[in-house]
Every structure is written in C-alpha cells, then in structure tokens.
Design a protein around this nucleic acid. Structure first.
Length: 97
DNA sequence: AAGTAAGAAATTT
DNA sequence: AAATTTCTTACTT
C-alpha cells in the first residue's frame, strides 16, 4: 500500500478546496502550496492521484485557459467543467415520488 | 538521474 | 488574432 507523499497531500488539500463551477490554474495551486514554480510537479502529483474522482482535479487548468490534461481524458474534463459551470443542468435530483 | 496533467514566448497560418 | 509548436524552469520521486 502506499502512503501519499507530503507534497501530494498538500496539493490535494488545496485542490479539494476549489469551489464547484470554478477553475484554478496549476500555478494558482502551486502558489497556494508555497511553491509557485512547482506547476509541473502539481500536475504529476494529480496524475498519480488515486483520488482523481474525489479531488476536483478536473477544475485545474492551464493559466492561459487551456484545458490541460486529465487522467480520464482531457475531453471528459472539458465536459465536466462545462457542466459544472452551467450549474443548472439536470443535477436537480428528482425527488423520487 | 530522469520525467513531468505547465508556462511563456515565438512562429506560423 | 488565433492556433500550434518549441524551449525553458523548477519540482518530485
């Protein structure tokens, strides 16, 4: 089994705090964790991230607006972001009965 | 020592 | 102006 490295923990902690419907850049996360130049390390950490679903890593994009990459496919990531941004999609949980 | 889910800049179209 | 490509830098493992 694996324990997360300290850097990964820090990255996940920050990324987990990104509000829904918003996006942040890798640089933003890197800055938050105290290493504004560790942008690539952040990406690498997220890719090694076993919590790809638990951590909103799909809300992390390039600083210039590019979609970046995603373990499950950048295409899916883009879709997720659009859906979250819309925020009025069919998320309305239909109350059963 | 080797690799990277980035960034910025430069170039091309 | 927008898109694509290339190189650089710093970080982690």
């Amino acid at each position: 089994m694996k324990e997360l490295t300290s850097f990964q923990k820090r990255v996940y902690t920050v990324v987990k705090q990104i509000p829904c419907g918003k996006t942040r850049s890798y640089a933003w996360v890197a800055c938050k964790i105290g290493k504004p130049h560790a942008v690539r390390a952040v990406g690498t950490a997220l890719k090694n991230n076993p919590f790809t679903i638990i951590v909103p890593c799909h809300r992390v994009v390039h600083s210039n607006g590019a979609i970046g990459d995603y373990a499950l496919g950048a295409d899916l990531k883009k879709k997720l972001l659009e859906t979250e941004s819309d925020r009025r999609n069919k998320i309305k949980i239909k109350r059963i009965r």
